[in-house]
Amino acid sequence: MSWDEKLIKQAKKIVKLYPQKRSALGPLLHLAQSKDGYISDDSVSVISELVGITEVQVKSVSTFYSMYKQEPTGKYLLSVCKSISCEINNSNSIIDVVKDFTGLNNNETDEEGLFTFEAVECIGACGGAPAIQVNYETVEGLSTENTLNLCEWLKNETPDLVVADELQNKFGGTKSFDWAIADNSGTTGSVPGFQTLNTTKDKK
């Protein structure tokens, strides 16, 4: 097994939460993604053993959901919302700016491994449309100008950690409400967007 002992222990704890082992598949895939930033074939093998189904069945689930990344992402995952609220607030031009700046099409990663661009469905920030997520940290009320600034800043400063509040202050506009993900270590964080274990406790 290519997972270390600690991760296996965590995985087994997740498996135990469910009456049927294979129900743990989703959370385990998140765990795998938190390890490598994507679902590696290695992780698929480990998970298939943990939940007692074949590798291709795990692969089938992991490729079905687009938020399980199948390939390593860049250092910064730029997810621009393209759903209805953002779209009527001009997300198309935000997308164009990001595309132009990075030179990437949807779901592509640049050669240096700095940026990955994706246009995504609703990220729940309709109140502050148009919005973008950098490593799942949300920035609301974007303008095309600020989007460009955001990209340039990321490229020049290359911060190791991006934090929603900081980004919002620097580049955001109207904010709908406070965002507080306990973990902001990006695509390699414990779980992007949500956590499966001790959610309330960690968030305080």
Binding site: D41, V44, I53, T54, E55, V56, Q57, K59, S60, T63, F64
Partner: peptide, 22 residues
């Protein structure tokens, strides 16, 4: 009882396939 083929991807991209090297 040996599910070694499955749907991979979804929607327009769905295909039947095996796991690499399996």
């Amino acid at each position: 009882g040996d599910p070694l083929i499955e749907f991979i991807q979804r929607g327009n991209k769905t295909e039947v396939n095996t796991f690499p090297n399996e």
